[in-house]
């Protein structure tokens, strides 16, 4: 197993569990279960998606063991429609923080960690797992439209946090300015 998949797998686990030790355990168990059931891997499917699905299943099993399973009626599905709440345009930010900006990285991670599971899980599976919408829908057993909706809201939340960050650090004059008009 190379870092090519282990690294995003671990990054995903880290954002799912919000804890490094738990993330290492999660990855270890997922890898073990993956190796153990390699014979069930079907030709024609994507190995990466398969591994991330296992990772998510292991995560869900652990959550359920602690009686913290998501409720049957997820409040996330009762939120206002995406159409009414577009993802904010942050182009007022003069320049994106440097790659090595630890403060920015920490803020992003904190913002992701603050998301409810319903939004955080699809986001990390997409961003770090590089899974498609359909693969996420399959892994989470939710409709693809729900995946899109939750990704939308996760992105909106992240950008709202980043707008605050930009304002605090003098990177943007007014992070809440209305979107620029197009043609």
């Amino acid at each position: 197993m190379t870092n090519e998949i282990a690294r995003p797998l671990f990054a995903t686990a880290l954002r799912l569990t919000r804890n490094r030790d738990d993330a290492e355990d999660l990855v270890q168990e997922a890898l073990y279960r993956g190796f153990r059931s390699l014979s069930t891997f079907r030709k024609g499917s994507r190995f990466r998606a398969w591994m991330f699905r296992i990772l998510h299943n292991v995560f869900i099993n652990r959550v359920r063991r602690q009686q913290l399973a998501p409720r049957a009626t997820d409040p996330a599905d009762l939120a206002p429609s995406d159409h009414d709440h577009p993802i904010p345009d942050l182009r007022d930010i003069r320049e994106l923080p440097e790659v090595a900006d630890r403060h920015f990285d920490e803020r992003v991670k904190a913002a992701v960690d603050s998301l409810p599971d319903a939004f955080r899980v699809p986001m990390v599976l997409f961003s770090l797992g590089a899974l498609s919408y359909q693969e996420i829908a399959d892994a989470l057993e939710i409709p693809i439209g729900t995946v899109m909706s939750r990704l939308h809201r996760a992105r909106r939340h992240l950008r709202t946090e980043l707008a605050d960050y930009a304002r605090e650090h003098g990177l943007a004059p007014d992070p809440h300015a209305p979107e620029g008009a197009g043609s």
Binding site: L96, V99, D105, V108, V112, L128
Partner: peptide
């Protein structure tokens, strides 16, 4: 921005 966010999330691994 998406690329930068992904980099941030991968930063500690």
């Amino acid at each position: 921005l998406e690329k930068r966010l992904q980099t941030a999330l991968l930063a500690d691994v």
